[in-house]
Design a protein around this nucleic acid. Structure first.
Lengths: 159, 159
DNA sequence: CTAAATGATTCAGACCCTGTATGTTTAGTT
DNA sequence: AACTAAACATACAGGGTCTGAATCATTTAG
């Protein structure tokens, strides 16, 4: 049990999340807010429904998170003129600054966490987590070419 | 942000924990119960206070978890004769069976999770998480010959 | 022998999240 | 054009998990 990846992963994540939460608390943010900002910042502007799906949470939670970020002047809600049901979320300048601060804190946690690892292990961990992280679920190209189940990933552990 | 270990770790753990929770639900257990059983099973019998510290939760939560496991006949509370304030928790036969089932489910989740990894990556991930997992804060022998439980030393991220 | 400390327990409440109900806007059908 | 169904954002109530404070029992210290 203690030796399973699932168990170790969960235990570790609990600690890491707590550390991250403690760090960004002074910014008036919780990890969920950082999650949302990161999702908003990535790629094209998106609706709240869309973001809810990406984060794997209920749409009503996005409302609450966005409300808070809005009071912090970190993001703006703008009605999509093409579809006025939608609220398009975009980060403000302040939002981008806050997100950058969160990223810095996350990296600090990383450094702390992986301090006991040799560089090789650090890279490997980073790379493997990148492969496994949700959302990165390689949209299996409906290809006919046999799914290359064991093919080593091409991507380098980039920063 | 999305590229930090902390972020990826948390995202992944959320998914993994949900999968594990879904699997052990039929056993009448939640992940926390499995956590507690694992802690109880490991090493010498311990008091609830002690277990609370190990799991990093409030003692009052141990009470609730132990209550539930007791109704399942999975564990026993016995007053420590040497210090009658303490309740010593021990798994029953049924508890050990349940824990074994949880372990099996965790391994199944592992298999599913790491299906897309090369064997080398799997071992590395397992090993690194073992190093980092809380409670395993082992004083690191200076360098070189790391605990080579399994992981071969020479490894490239993209083998 | 009294006072402080430790352990288990109960309980109230905080926090996070979901599901449902509602109003608005869009899309589809006739 | 009118009507219906679907999609979106939102408000709100409630569930689940966890903590902190209060309580009782037992042990330890002075």
């Amino acid at each position: 049990m203690d030796s399973t990846v699932a168990f170790r992963l969960s235990s570790l994540a609990a600690v890491v999340t707590d550390q991250f939460a403690a760090r960004i608390e002074v910014l008036g943010l919780k990890p969920r807010h950082a999650d949302l900002m990161a999702a908003v910042a990535g790629g094209a502007p998106r609706s709240q429904q869309d973001l809810a799906r990406t984060l794997g949470v209920a749409p009503s939670l996005i409302v609450a998170l966005a409300d808070h970020l809005e009071t912090l002047k970190a993001l703006q809600r703008v009605r999509d003129p093409r579809d006025r049901r939608r609220q398009v979320l975009t980060l403000t300048r302040r939002g981008r600054t806050l997100l950058a601060a969160c990223t810095a804190h996350a990296r600090a946690v990383d450094a702390d966490l992986t301090a006991r690892l040799v560089p090789l292990e650090r890279d490997m961990l980073h790379h493997v987590l990148g492969t496994l992280a949700p959302g990165r679920a390689e949209p299996q190209p409906p290809a006919r070419t046999r799914t290359r189940t064991r093919t080593p990933a091409q991507t380098r552990p980039s920063a």
